[in-house]
Write a protein that binds this DNA or RNA. Structure first.
Lengths: 171, 171
DNA sequence: TATCTTAACTTGCATATTGCAAGTTGTCAG
DNA sequence: CTGACAACTTGCAATATGCAAGTTAAGATA
C-alpha cells in the first residue's frame, strides 16, 4: 500500500480532521447541492457531471462519515433511497459561505455572470459584496438556516430555501 | 485523457470556483501552515509529511494560482526561495476558521487533546466553544488578522501570530 | 582542495483514485 | 413482453500520489 488511507479524521488539529472528512474531491460540491435541496442519486449525477461509480462511492462514504443519511422513500409502490443532510452535513454551511465569499473575491467567472446572493427571509434583503455572512447586512440579525435563501441567477431567478437536516427536529 | 483537468476555476458558482482552486488535496493544509508562518519547502515537507514531489507540484501550482508568492531571500550569500501568502492565500482564513469550527464540533481527536483556540490580542481573550469567529466573543470587536493569535496546545502552549500577506502593505 | 551537508527539487516506478463505458437489477409504463 | 429509468456495479484506461533515489548548487568542514 502506498497512498495513505484517505479520509482520516483523527489527529489533534480540527482543520486537519475537517479536511480529512469533507476535503475529498466532490464532497464539498455534493454538500453544496444537498444544501440546495438535491437528494437523489440521479439528480446529483446530472447536476454535478460526476461519474456514477464515483458518486456511488462518495455517497456511501459520506453516509459512513455521518454527513448524509440514506433514507428510504416510496415512489409509487417502489422503495427508493434518498440522501439527506444530517446535522453534521448541514453544519458545513459556514464552510460553504466562506468558500463562496473567497470565490467571489479571488476568482473570476468565465463570463460576466451575476453573483450568488444570500437573502434573509424575514427582512427580505440580500447580502452585500463579499459574500454570504452569518449575520444579515441589512437588519443585523443572525441568519437562521431556515430563514436563509440562496439566489443563483445563472440557474434561476428564484431564491432557493436551504434543506433542513434530517431527522427533522420537532421543536 | 480521462480525468478532467483539475483546478478549474471557472463557472458561475463561486463555491465551485473556490473548490477548483483551493479544494485539491494538501492545498488547504499547506495554506493552514503558511498562515501559521511556514514559508520554506523543507518546513512544509516535514510538518505535513507530504511527499516532496507532490509538495513541489502543489507549491508551483499554488504560485500559479496566486495563492502563494515565490520570493527570493538570502541565507548567508546564498539565494533561496520561500513561499509567502498572497492576499488571496491569506484570504482563505475564514475558510480555515469555518473548517476548524466544523472539525471541533463534528469530529473527534483520537486522544482527548486540548482544543485549538483563537486569541484576540487587544483584549487577550480566547474564543469560546464552537471555534474561531470573525468577531471576538469577549469584547465584540472584529478580529483583525494582525490581532489574531492561534493556540495549538498539542504543538506548543505559545500563541502563534498569523503570517501577513506578501507584499506587505505599507499603511 | 576534497569531501560533506543541506535545501530544494526531479525522476522512476508501484499503488491508488478517477473517469468512461457498459452491464446489472428491480420496478413501472405501455 | 418490451422498453425505460434509477441506482448501482464492473472493467479498464488515464491520472494522481507516495516512496525512494538521484540531482544541483553552494556553504561548511577537514
Amino acid at each position: 500500500m502506498t497512498a495513505r488511507p484517505r479520509g482520516k479524521a483523527t489527529g489533534p488539529c480540527p482543520i486537519g480532521r475537517a479536511v480529512g472528512v469533507i476535503g475529498e474531491r466532490w464532497t464539498l460540491l455534493i454538500l453544496r447541492n444537498a444544501t440546495l435541496g438535491t437528494t437523489r442519486f440521479e439528480a446529483f449525477r446530472s447536476e454535478l457531471g460526476i461519474a456514477d461509480n464515483i458518486l456511488s462511492d462518495r455517497l456511501a462514504r459520506m453516509v459512513e462519515a455521518g454527513l448524509l443519511a440514506r433514507v428510504p422513500y416510496t415512489e409509487g409502490r417502489r422503495v427508493r433511497h434518498e440522501y439527506r443532510l444530517t446535522d453534521a452535513g448541514a453544519g458545513v454551511l459556514p464552510v460553504l459561505h466562506a468558500l463562496a465569499a473567497w470565490g467571489e473575491e479571488h476568482t473570476r467567472a468565465g463570463e460576466s455572470s451575476p453573483s450568488m446572493r444570500v437573502v434573509h427571509r424575514p427582512c427580505g434583503h440580500a447580502t452585500g459584496p463579499g459574500g454570504p455572512r452569518a449575520t444579515c447586512d441589512h437588519c443585523g440579525q443572525p441568519i437562521r438556516r431556515d430563514d436563509e435563501l440562496w439566489v443563483r441567477p445563472w440557474r434561476s431567478p428564484d431564491p432557493i430555501p436551504l434543506a433542513q437536516p434530517f431527522p427533522w427536529k420537532s421543536r
